[in-house]
Write a protein that binds this DNA or RNA. Structure first.
Lengths: 148, 148
DNA sequence: TTACAAGCTCAACTTAACTTGAGGTCAAGC
DNA sequence: GCTTGACCTCAAGTTAAGTTGAGCTTGTAA
């Protein structure tokens, strides 16, 4: 079957660069979808490649799978997403990115200030104070995605 | 004992804003150190507050405990670290921060480009290609710290 | 001197995002 | 028709950074 539109897991894996197990995982999480052959094997439409691409990019930016899932859920159910649909996602995430960059900059400047000030008095350290306002969170492992 | 230099875990916890369990954990990881009373209770020198502050700031910047541990290990063993010692750390971490910011910017700009270009051809997407060069990592859970 | 808060240890649990493995099925080439 | 590689499911393991809990000891204020 030369130019079949359907892709197997293995094909999606090689073309997208993510492991088969990860694709299974994304599907279980509802991030991608497949239908099955009579022999119970997954078959994917071509747009799954774009979805996976988006997933990876968003992850790299530090967006969690849960958030990505929500965003992807906003895509139209029936039809293949249009360029407009994708644009909405991109724009939203670009804003998140901008915020993240701004936050890191603030942190960097704080660090720079600390070098200047010597800052041996922990109680008055601008970084510490900034950080104190952020404390008091729930249990379990927080901060679980590194923007590498 | 009014102005004792020694601090208990509880005191360090309240003053630094991290849980007692976290302090135990840091100590097990070798990030901080204590000595024990005759009754086997921990006592900390005052500089532990500064260490903990540094740990938290570095984490916020997205540095893993392992890396922080290495950096802290570079501090002088015997004497209380001088301002110079801390400066070395700060500078190194500021550089990391700068890199991280640059990376995020590149990603954001790539995303913006993608909006412009429509980018329906995944294979030629600048984001995907950039990301492909970064793939092929070890097993287990990577990307484990979010810069919130 | 007796409560009771604060400490101690050690094991098990948590979350995210997957991977690994066992045990079994499907499909395609020779 | 059979072997081999790709698939399938489901359970359990992994990492980071802690938290939670049980069971037991310390220290201190009334």
């Amino acid at each position: 079957m030369a130019a079949a539109t359907e892709l197997t897991v293995g094909q999606v894996a090689t073309r997208s660069g993510v492991a088969v197990s990860a694709l299974h995982f994304y599907e279980a999480r509802g991030l991608i979808r497949s239908h099955r052959t009579s022999g119970n094997q997954r078959r994917y439409g071509r747009d799954v490649l774009r979805r996976v691409a988006i997933i990876k990019v968003a992850q790299e930016v530090g967006i969690s799978l849960a958030e990505i899932g929500e965003a992807l859920a906003s895509l139209p159910e029936g039809r293949t997403p249009t360029r407009e649909d994708w644009n909405l996602l991109s724009t939203a995430w670009r804003d998140q990115l901008d915020q993240k960059i701004a936050q890191l900059k603030k942190l960097r400047d704080g660090l720079t200030d600390c070098i200047g000030c010597g800052c041996m008095s922990i109680d008055r350290c601008p970084l510490r104070n900034k950080e104190d306002r952020l404390s008091a969170q729930g249990p379990g492992a927080r901060r679980l995605l590194v923007t590498r």
